[in-house]
Design a protein around this nucleic acid. Structure first.
Length: 509
RNA sequence: GCUCCCAUCGUCUAGCGGUCCAGGACGCCGCCCUCUCACGGCGGAAACCGGGGUUCAAGUCCCCGUGGGAGCGCCA
């Protein structure tokens, strides 16, 4: 079960959806048809000002899973209205991260900068309908206002000076457009992870929806896009929870229903503090660089804030089938590298070695090794996966299969490559040179044979041999190591070790 | 400062009023296995933030406190 299990997959999800829809029908017969037809559409809407953040990747994963589970679609939208900070490199980096994780989108990427005409149209409509107004207040006045309010220990907000203005102060005075937020009542958000959250309209002010240059702001573009794109479920970080009532008000002013919201908690660093660069791996691609399999990262992320009983390992199909927003935790969760390491190893052990080998190949390349010049990587994977947590670790520990170790591990050499062990190495060299068949079981017999003939325990001959072959105290079982390394390389390394022992002897004498 | 959110082992979590002297996982400790390191197996230490209620019964519901976090931009 688990990792490799294709199994039942998403097919089983369909009846569940239907069952839920039927319940809704019973409660709201009038809207039954609409509910049944409503297709799930989720979105991931990063702003391209950096890399794909691990927290962003998790909300993207949740959105993606939810869409997949319900046979809906997943939209990628690039929120690049801040033209100062948005870059194409960043867009590429985000796309690269999504691709590496395998979170393919069904629609998009849509760029907000290409939809300015549409936003202008909506802003104009709001203006025409009196649901928005022009504000001529200068930045200076606004700054002063804010400062004063803070001094008075009040929540800084716009005072509505231009709200009821009928004439502009001067014919071509510059202005921003503000949304006319309701003065009374409250906005209730039925959040799928936080439950019912009520905000009083008196806490909200008239936010700017168009800047002096006419460009739209975030709260406006989000609302227009979610509306136009038919987003049914907005799954995003809970740092947006406070923006939600404003967005709901704009949506209502536009005459549409708000989508379902699910504000997922943010991810914390290992120290429980807000994730930042100093925590190391914050970008998704750094997880590739550090040797994690995308499947393991996905599994790790899905378990952060979500669970299904005691199950720890989920195949993609299982995730799709079992994931539900209602099972999301409301508490922020801290990253835990040791658990990721464990999971990654579980995946390396359970997945098809050929698949793991493809990833390992990239890491070998990073270390300057051409895997074609040595044992098949698939075999290396099988030999090393039990003693590696990451692909980087696996690659480093496997370097000796592809090139002569530059030096011996100090401690290991002192203990195992010395005059005392020379006879064992010599005997091994002779026996291995004469071995009729270079094959694991035979090699095992050869090594144990040498040990017996010298009346030594296996460890007494295996360990010096290990150091001779690998340069250090750790390697796969000695027979396996020999088999993978091959006869020529093995003999050459024993010779080198014998020579090393002699040199040490001379130096000492 | 104001508003909103959050609170079970170190960490990720189970728990959806009685089955909890709180279960699982990672990590940690011990033992077993063993040619090294591991893997694996077995065992162990380790938590309901505090205080009030509600109830026959509270980790589970309510309130307050405390502690964390987020938002309050012509950023997104």
């Amino acid at each position: 079960m688990g990792i490799l299990g294709g199994g039942a997959g998403g097919v089983n999800a369909a009846p569940a959806v239907r069952a839920r829809a039927l319940v809704s029908c019973a409660l709201f017969p009038a809207s039954a048809e609409r509910i049944v037809r409503m297709t799930v559409k989720t979105r991931f809407a990063p702003s391209p000002t950096g890399y794909l953040h691990i927290g962003g990747a998790r909300t993207a994963l949740f959105s993606w899973l939810y869409a997949r589970k319900h046979g809906g679609s997943f939209v990628l939208r690039v929120e690049d209205t801040d033209q100062e900070r948005s870059t194409q490199e960043s867009v590429n980096a985000i796309l690269e991260g999504m691709t590496w994780l395998g979170l393919e989108y069904d629609e998009g990427p849509f760029y907000q900068t290409r939809r300015f005409d549409r936003y202008r149209e909506v802003i104009q409509r709001l203006l025409d309908e009196g649901k928005a107004y022009k504000c001529y207040c200068s930045k200076e006045r606004l700054d002063a206002l804010r400062e004063e309010q803070q001094k008075r220990k009040e929540k800084p907000r716009y005072d509505g000076k231009c709200r009821d203005l009928t004439e502009p102060p001067s014919p071509d005075a510059p202005y921003v457009v503000r949304f006319r937020n309701p003065l009374e009542g409250q906005v209730v958000v039925d959040d799928r992870v936080h439950g019912r959250v009520a905000f009083s309209n008196t806490e909200l002010d008239d936010l700017i929806i168009a800047r002096t240059d006419g460009s739209p702001t975030y709260n406006l573009t989000v609302v227009v896009d979610d509306m136009d794109m038919g987003i049914s479920h907005v799954i995003r970080g809970d740092d947006h929870l406070n923006n939600t009532p404003r967005q709901v008000n704009i949506l209502h002013a536009l005459g549409v229903e708000a989508p379902v919201y699910a504000h997922v908690p943010m991810i914390l660093g290992e120290d429980g503090k807000r994730l930042s660069k100093r925590h190391g791996a914050v970008s998704v691609m750094s997880y590739r660089d550090e040797g994690y399999l995308p499947e393991a990262v996905l599994n790790y992320l899905v378990r952060l804030g979500w669970s299904h009983g005691d199950q720890e390992i989920f195949s993609l199909d299982e995730m799709i089938q079992l994931f539900d927003i209602d099972d999301l935790n409301a508490k922020a969760s801290a990253l835990n590298v040791s658990k990721l390491n464990w999971l990654n190893q579980q995946y390396m052990k359970a997945m098809d070695p050929a698949h793991v080998a493809r990833h390992l190949s990239w890491h070998m390349g990073q270390l300057g090794v051409d895997p074609a010049q040595g044992p098949a990587l698939e075999d290396i994977v099988v030999a090393q996966r039990e003693r590696s947590h990451t692909l980087v670790e696996m690659a480093r520990n496997s370097l000796f299969f592809y090139r002569m170790p530059e030096s011996y591990d100090d401690k290991a050499a002192r203990k195992n490559l010395k005059a005392d062990t020379r006879p064992a190495l010599e005997a091994l060299r002779a026996a291995l040179a004469a071995a009729p068949e270079w094959q694991r079981e035979r090699l095992h017999e050869t090594v144990t044979g040498v040990a017996e003939s010298l009346d030594l325990k296996l460890g007494k001959v295996a360990q010096p041999l290990r150091v001779a072959l690998s340069g250090g105290p750790v390697s796969p079982p000695i027979d396996e190591t020999l088999e993978l390394l091959g006869r020529d390389r093995s003999l050459a390394r024993i010779d080198a070790a014998l020579q090393f022992i002699d040199q040490q002897g001379q130096a000492a004498g």
